[in-house]
């Protein structure tokens, strides 16, 4: 097995004048779960499409398992199992017929095909639903079946494009546990997601892309080290009106050493402030609260997490 299972070097993909992927380089180690993060329009899907052989690229080199995608596309594709973001299934066919068809595209047939289908369905916990039409399965089951169709042929590299979108917590746990199991069995996984906790939970290394460029790549610890000059301050205050809260955010944002300030989405009486790490004196922040007559309940300060790192690196929230 090559030292790097996937090697992408100086990848460029243009759509007319728009540069979707701009000189992107990264590598994926064998047997790791590699997170691929980026806001919408960052070039993430384009990169995935190029990698799985769906889209031609303008320049750069891609090697998978030692094969050059430009010249050995068939050999590369044979290594890959794609789990697309959309539920790409034939809704009128039973679950097992879907898995059977997609596995057969990889050359499986006869007894080997039957065994692979049964194994894949068992892996995603759908053995008992094998004969049910896809249209009769729940959304979570369809997601799991979507995965079964991508892994039945035992691919060495599994590309999962947001496989947990719209699923219930139980199915999500099932899927995440399955991804870890695939890694334990020796598969290499490229995993894209909008859910930061998922990425933190299962990925060994993470690449962050934005505007088609690689912003950062490494383990969680390595990425956090990229933004050590920042910390998050949380100020919980007594519930106030919308006008006062808006004024609060506006004034705090104008303070020196403050990068961003925003009300928490779930708790509007919580102000999240990303500030320079060397900001030790909170008096300027407190004075704004006093001026606006907003009583403070609690102040906490914490080291940056992956979410703040992402924000710091891209200037955007992951789901923006």
């Amino acid at each position: 097995m090559p030292e790097e299972y996937v090697q992408v070097e100086h990848l460029v993909k243009r759509y007319g004048d728009v540069v979707a992927v701009d000189d992107l380089s990264f590598s994926v180690h064998p047997g790791e779960i590699f997170g691929f993060l980026g806001p919408n329009g960052a070039g993430k899907s384009t990169t995935i499409n190029v990698l799985v052989g769906l889209t031609k690229w303008n320049s750069g080199q891609i090697r998978v398992a030692g094969h050059d995608l430009a010249h050995e596309a068939k050999a590369v594709k044979a290594q890959i199992g794609l789990v697309p973001q959309e539920i790409a299934l034939y809704r009128n066919l039973p679950a097992k017929r879907n898995v059977e068809y997609f596995a057969s595209l990889y050359g499986l047939h006869g007894k080997a095909l039957k065994e692979a289908v049964a194994e894949a369905l068992a892996f995603v916990g759908l053995s008992e639903q094998a004969d049910r039409r896809v249209s009769k399965l729940s959304g979570g089951m369809q997601r799991r079946l979507n995965i079964a169709c991508g892994i039945a042929h035992h691919p060495k590299l599994i590309v999962m494009d947001e496989p947990t979108v719209g699923v219930d917590p139980q199915s999500r746990e099932h899927i995440l546990a399955g991804v870890k199991t695939l890694r334990e069995r020796g598969a290499t996984v490229i995993y894209t997601s909008h859910y930061m906790p998922e990425v933190q939970e299962i990925c060994d290394r993470i690449a962050i892309v934005d505007h088609g460029k690689l912003i950062g790549c490494g383990s969680e610890r390595e990425l956090l080290a990229l933004v050590t000059d920042q910390k998050r301050i949380r100020v919980e205050f007594a519930p106030a009106g919308e006008e006062a809260s808006a004024e609060l955010v506006k004034r705090v944002q104008l303070l020196p050493d403050i990068r961003t300030a925003a009300l928490d989405r779930e708790q509007p009486s919580l102000l999240n402030i990303d500030a320079q790490v060397d900001l030790a004196d909170y008096s300027s922040i407190l004075s704004v609260f006093i001026e606006l007559g907003l009583p403070i309940k609690q102040i906490t300060s914490e080291a940056p997490d992956l979410e703040t790192t992402f924000l710091a690196l891209t200037g955007r929230e992951l789901r923006s």
Binding site: V52, G53, K77, A78, P84, E86, A88, L89, F102, Y106
Partner: peptide
């Protein structure tokens, strides 16, 4: 529309 073509094209089948 349903993505099955995308999935088929990602396979080694010509």
């Amino acid at each position: 529309r349903n993505g099955t073509l995308r999935r088929a094209l990602a396979s080694p089948r010509s």
